[in-house]
Simulated scan of single mutants.
Amino acid sequence: MSVLLMVLAAAYGAAAGLLIPRPVHRMAVEPEEEWRAACPGGHVIAGAARGWLGRGRCPEPGCGVYGPGALPSAGGTALVCAALAAATGARPELAVWLAMAPVAVLLVAVDRQVRRLPDVLTLPLAVVAAGALGLVGAMTGETGAWRRALLGGLALGVFYLLLFAVNPGGIGLGDVKLAFALGIALGWYGWRTVVTGGAAGVLIGAAYGAAVMLVRRGGPKVMPFGPFMIIGAFGGLLLGAAARG
Protein backbone atom coordinates (compact mmCIF):
# COMPACT_ATOMS: atom_id res chain seq x y z
CA MET A 1 0.00 0.00 0.00
CA SER A 2 2.79 2.44 0.90
CA VAL A 3 4.57 1.86 -2.43
CA LEU A 4 1.34 2.34 -4.36
CA LEU A 5 0.62 5.50 -2.37
CA MET A 6 4.07 6.87 -3.19
CA VAL A 7 3.62 6.09 -6.87
CA LEU A 8 0.23 7.80 -6.95
CA ALA A 9 1.59 10.80 -5.07
CA ALA A 10 4.55 11.04 -7.45
CA ALA A 11 2.23 10.87 -10.47
CA TYR A 12 0.09 13.63 -9.00
CA GLY A 13 3.20 15.70 -8.26
CA ALA A 14 4.51 15.27 -11.78
CA ALA A 15 1.18 16.35 -13.26
CA ALA A 16 0.99 19.36 -10.94
CA GLY A 17 4.62 20.23 -11.67
CA LEU A 18 3.90 20.43 -15.37
CA LEU A 19 1.49 23.30 -14.62
CA ILE A 20 4.09 25.39 -12.78
CA PRO A 21 6.37 26.89 -15.50
CA ARG A 22 3.80 29.32 -16.89
CA PRO A 23 2.77 30.89 -13.54
CA VAL A 24 6.44 31.18 -12.56
CA HIS A 25 7.10 33.25 -15.69
CA ARG A 26 4.02 35.40 -15.12
CA MET A 27 4.62 36.01 -11.40
CA ALA A 28 8.38 36.56 -11.51
CA VAL A 29 8.10 40.37 -11.66
CA GLU A 30 8.96 43.23 -9.35
CA PRO A 31 6.33 44.20 -6.72
CA GLU A 32 5.28 47.36 -8.57
CA GLU A 33 4.84 45.55 -11.88
CA GLU A 34 1.75 43.74 -13.14
CA TRP A 35 1.82 40.02 -13.85
CA ARG A 36 3.38 39.24 -17.21
CA ALA A 37 0.80 38.75 -19.93
CA ALA A 38 3.20 37.83 -22.73
CA CYS A 39 6.08 35.48 -23.43
CA PRO A 40 9.62 36.91 -23.79
CA GLY A 41 8.91 37.35 -27.50
CA GLY A 42 5.95 39.62 -26.77
CA HIS A 43 3.20 37.19 -27.73
CA VAL A 44 0.12 37.12 -25.48
CA ILE A 45 0.09 33.98 -23.32
CA ALA A 46 -2.92 31.78 -23.90
CA GLY A 47 -3.87 28.25 -22.99
CA ALA A 48 -5.12 26.39 -19.95
CA ALA A 49 -6.98 28.46 -17.35
CA ARG A 50 -6.69 31.60 -19.49
CA GLY A 51 -2.95 31.31 -19.80
CA TRP A 52 -2.09 30.74 -16.15
CA LEU A 53 -1.37 27.01 -15.99
CA GLY A 54 0.83 24.78 -18.09
CA ARG A 55 4.19 24.52 -19.77
CA GLY A 56 6.03 27.67 -20.77
CA ARG A 57 5.98 27.18 -24.50
CA CYS A 58 4.98 29.78 -27.05
CA PRO A 59 3.38 28.33 -30.19
CA GLU A 60 4.59 31.20 -32.36
CA PRO A 61 7.36 30.25 -34.81
CA GLY A 62 10.84 31.00 -33.56
CA CYS A 63 9.77 31.74 -29.99
CA GLY A 64 9.90 28.42 -28.14
CA VAL A 65 10.18 27.69 -24.40
CA TYR A 66 10.12 30.25 -21.59
CA GLY A 67 10.16 30.01 -17.81
CA PRO A 68 11.59 27.03 -15.89
CA GLY A 69 11.86 23.69 -17.63
CA ALA A 70 8.88 21.38 -17.49
CA LEU A 71 10.94 18.31 -16.58
CA PRO A 72 12.69 19.87 -13.55
CA SER A 73 9.37 21.29 -12.31
CA ALA A 74 7.58 17.97 -12.74
CA GLY A 75 10.45 15.91 -11.34
CA GLY A 76 10.99 18.13 -8.31
CA THR A 77 7.31 18.27 -7.41
CA ALA A 78 7.00 14.49 -7.91
CA LEU A 79 9.88 13.84 -5.51
CA VAL A 80 8.41 16.17 -2.89
CA CYS A 81 4.99 14.52 -3.08
CA ALA A 82 6.43 11.01 -3.01
CA ALA A 83 8.48 11.85 0.09
CA LEU A 84 5.44 13.30 1.82
CA ALA A 85 3.44 10.16 1.03
CA ALA A 86 6.23 7.92 2.30
CA ALA A 87 6.47 9.78 5.60
CA THR A 88 2.77 10.41 6.19
CA GLY A 89 1.23 7.20 4.91
CA ALA A 90 -2.49 6.89 4.25
CA ARG A 91 -3.52 9.46 6.82
CA PRO A 92 -6.06 12.19 5.95
CA GLU A 93 -3.62 15.08 6.39
CA LEU A 94 -1.61 13.77 3.42
CA ALA A 95 -4.21 15.32 1.12
CA VAL A 96 -3.45 18.71 2.68
CA TRP A 97 0.32 18.31 2.23
CA LEU A 98 -0.14 17.26 -1.39
CA ALA A 99 -2.32 20.29 -2.05
CA MET A 100 0.27 22.62 -0.52
CA ALA A 101 3.31 21.06 -2.23
CA PRO A 102 2.90 22.49 -5.77
CA VAL A 103 2.26 25.96 -4.36
CA ALA A 104 5.42 25.67 -2.26
CA VAL A 105 7.44 24.65 -5.34
CA LEU A 106 5.98 27.60 -7.23
CA LEU A 107 6.92 29.96 -4.40
CA VAL A 108 10.49 28.64 -4.37
CA ALA A 109 10.83 29.21 -8.11
CA VAL A 110 9.43 32.76 -8.02
CA ASP A 111 11.44 33.80 -4.97
CA ARG A 112 14.66 32.51 -6.49
CA GLN A 113 14.11 34.59 -9.61
CA VAL A 114 12.92 37.92 -8.22
CA ARG A 115 13.33 37.61 -4.42
CA ARG A 116 9.62 38.01 -3.94
CA LEU A 117 6.83 35.91 -2.41
CA PRO A 118 3.51 37.07 -3.92
CA ASP A 119 0.69 37.73 -1.47
CA VAL A 120 -1.70 36.03 -3.86
CA LEU A 121 0.07 32.76 -2.99
CA THR A 122 1.25 33.11 0.62
CA LEU A 123 -1.92 34.38 2.25
CA PRO A 124 -4.34 31.95 0.53
CA LEU A 125 -1.92 29.11 1.32
CA ALA A 126 -2.29 29.85 5.04
CA VAL A 127 -6.07 30.08 4.78
CA VAL A 128 -6.34 26.85 2.79
CA ALA A 129 -4.01 25.02 5.19
CA ALA A 130 -6.01 26.15 8.21
CA GLY A 131 -9.36 25.31 6.63
CA ALA A 132 -8.30 21.95 5.23
CA LEU A 133 -6.68 20.83 8.48
CA GLY A 134 -9.79 21.98 10.33
CA LEU A 135 -11.81 19.65 8.12
CA VAL A 136 -9.35 16.81 8.77
CA GLY A 137 -9.56 17.48 12.49
CA ALA A 138 -13.35 17.39 12.43
CA MET A 139 -13.37 14.14 10.43
CA THR A 140 -10.82 12.37 12.64
CA GLY A 141 -11.67 13.93 15.99
CA GLU A 142 -8.23 15.56 16.20
CA THR A 143 -9.52 19.03 16.95
CA GLY A 144 -6.68 19.49 19.42
CA ALA A 145 -4.14 19.04 16.63
CA TRP A 146 -5.99 21.63 14.56
CA ARG A 147 -5.96 24.19 17.36
CA ARG A 148 -2.26 23.52 17.87
CA ALA A 149 -1.72 23.98 14.11
CA LEU A 150 -3.32 27.42 14.26
CA LEU A 151 -1.19 28.37 17.25
CA GLY A 152 1.88 27.02 15.45
CA GLY A 153 1.13 29.26 12.49
CA LEU A 154 0.69 32.25 14.79
CA ALA A 155 3.91 31.47 16.68
CA LEU A 156 6.07 31.06 13.57
CA GLY A 157 4.50 34.12 11.95
CA VAL A 158 5.19 36.27 15.01
CA PHE A 159 8.74 34.91 15.19
CA TYR A 160 9.43 35.97 11.62
CA LEU A 161 7.73 39.30 12.23
CA LEU A 162 10.22 39.90 15.04
CA LEU A 163 13.09 38.92 12.74
CA PHE A 164 11.78 41.41 10.18
CA ALA A 165 11.56 44.15 12.83
CA VAL A 166 15.15 43.49 13.92
CA ASN A 167 16.61 43.10 10.43
CA PRO A 168 14.22 44.29 7.68
CA GLY A 169 17.02 43.98 5.14
CA GLY A 170 17.45 40.27 5.86
CA ILE A 171 13.90 39.07 5.28
CA GLY A 172 10.76 40.59 3.83
CA LEU A 173 7.12 40.74 4.76
CA GLY A 174 6.49 38.00 2.21
CA ASP A 175 8.59 35.69 4.38
CA VAL A 176 6.50 36.66 7.39
CA LYS A 177 3.27 35.81 5.57
CA LEU A 178 4.72 32.51 4.36
CA ALA A 179 5.68 31.64 7.94
CA PHE A 180 2.02 31.55 8.97
CA ALA A 181 1.25 28.84 6.39
CA LEU A 182 4.35 26.80 7.22
CA GLY A 183 3.71 27.06 10.95
CA ILE A 184 0.16 25.80 10.51
CA ALA A 185 1.38 22.70 8.69
CA LEU A 186 4.18 22.05 11.18
CA GLY A 187 1.91 22.64 14.16
CA TRP A 188 -0.29 19.70 13.19
CA TYR A 189 2.46 17.37 14.43
CA GLY A 190 3.35 19.24 17.60
CA TRP A 191 5.49 22.02 18.97
CA ARG A 192 8.70 20.06 18.53
CA THR A 193 7.97 19.90 14.80
CA VAL A 194 7.29 23.65 14.70
CA VAL A 195 10.63 24.37 16.37
CA THR A 196 12.51 21.84 14.21
CA GLY A 197 11.08 23.03 10.90
CA GLY A 198 11.30 26.71 11.78
CA ALA A 199 14.86 26.49 13.11
CA ALA A 200 15.99 24.41 10.15
CA GLY A 201 14.88 27.11 7.72
CA VAL A 202 16.76 29.81 9.63
CA LEU A 203 19.92 27.71 9.98
CA ILE A 204 19.97 26.64 6.33
CA GLY A 205 19.49 30.24 5.22
CA ALA A 206 22.22 31.46 7.58
CA ALA A 207 24.62 28.77 6.38
CA TYR A 208 23.97 29.69 2.76
CA GLY A 209 24.51 33.38 3.47
CA ALA A 210 27.77 32.64 5.29
CA ALA A 211 28.98 30.45 2.44
CA VAL A 212 28.22 33.17 -0.12
CA MET A 213 30.09 35.74 1.97
CA LEU A 214 33.15 33.48 2.14
CA VAL A 215 33.15 32.67 -1.56
CA ARG A 216 32.27 36.11 -2.91
CA ARG A 217 33.75 38.18 -0.07
CA GLY A 218 30.40 39.78 0.56
CA GLY A 219 26.89 38.36 0.59
CA PRO A 220 23.99 39.31 -1.67
CA LYS A 221 22.18 42.52 -0.81
CA VAL A 222 18.84 40.72 -0.67
CA MET A 223 18.81 36.96 -0.24
CA PRO A 224 15.71 34.97 -1.18
CA PHE A 225 14.83 33.45 2.19
CA GLY A 226 11.58 31.74 1.18
CA PRO A 227 13.26 28.66 -0.34
CA PHE A 228 15.18 28.01 2.88
CA MET A 229 12.03 28.40 4.95
CA ILE A 230 10.22 25.92 2.73
CA ILE A 231 13.10 23.42 2.71
CA GLY A 232 13.33 23.58 6.50
CA ALA A 233 9.58 23.18 6.93
CA PHE A 234 9.58 20.29 4.45
CA GLY A 235 12.23 18.49 6.49
CA GLY A 236 10.40 19.19 9.74
CA LEU A 237 7.14 17.94 8.27
CA LEU A 238 8.75 14.70 7.11
CA LEU A 239 10.24 14.10 10.55
CA GLY A 240 6.98 14.95 12.30
CA ALA A 241 4.93 12.68 10.07
CA ALA A 242 7.40 9.81 10.37
CA ALA A 243 7.54 10.13 14.15
CA ARG A 244 3.77 9.94 14.33
CA GLY A 245 3.97 6.68 12.44
Rank of each mutant, 00 (worst) to 15 (best):
Pro23Leu: 04
Gly190Phe: 02
Ala126Pro: 01
Val80Arg: 04
Leu106Gln: 04
Ala179His: 02
Ala181Asp: 09
Gly141Lys: 03
Glu60Tyr: 01
Met6Phe: 03
Ala95Val: 12
Ala46Gly: 06
Leu237Trp: 09
Leu162Trp: 13
Ile171Cys: 12
Gly54Met: 06
Ala145Met: 08
Leu107Trp: 00
Ala145Glu: 14
Gly169Ile: 01
Gly89Asn: 02
Gly75Glu: 07
Ile230Ser: 06
Val80Leu: 13
Arg57Gly: 05
Gly235Pro: 11
Phe164Lys: 10
Leu178Met: 12
Ala155Leu: 10
Gly141Trp: 09
Ala149Asn: 11
Gly75Asn: 04
Leu214Cys: 09
Ala130Ser: 11
Asp175Phe: 04
Ala207His: 06
Leu106Ser: 03
Trp146Phe: 14
Gly218Asn: 04
Ala242Trp: 15
Ala15Arg: 02
Val29Ala: 04
Val166Trp: 05
Pro224Asn: 10
Trp97Thr: 07
Ala104Tyr: 14
Val222Arg: 15
Ala243His: 15
Ala179Cys: 07
Tyr12Trp: 14
Leu178Thr: 04
Val103Ala: 13
Val7Arg: 08
Gly218Pro: 03
Val96Cys: 12
Gly183Asp: 02
Trp52Gly: 02
Met6Ala: 12
Ala16Arg: 09
Leu79His: 03
Gly245Asn: 10
Phe180His: 05
Ala165Pro: 03
Cys63His: 11
Gly62Ala: 08
Leu156Phe: 02
Leu154Gln: 09
Ala11Met: 11
Gly198Met: 04
Pro40Tyr: 00
Ala145Gln: 12
Gly141Phe: 03
Cys81Arg: 00
Leu173Tyr: 06
Ala46Met: 06
Met27Asn: 08
Ala210Lys: 07
Gly183Glu: 01
Ser2Gly: 15
Gly174Ala: 08
Ala155Cys: 09
Ala90His: 11
Leu79Phe: 09
Leu8Thr: 00
Met1Glu: 13
Val176Ala: 13
Pro102Ser: 14
Thr193Val: 13
Leu79Gly: 06
Leu79Asn: 00
Pro31Cys: 06
Ala165Gly: 07
Arg55Pro: 03
Val127Leu: 15
Gly187Glu: 04
Val212Gly: 11
Leu154Lys: 00
Leu182Ile: 06
Cys39Ala: 06
Ala210Asp: 05
Met213His: 15
Gly75Cys: 11
Val110Ile: 13
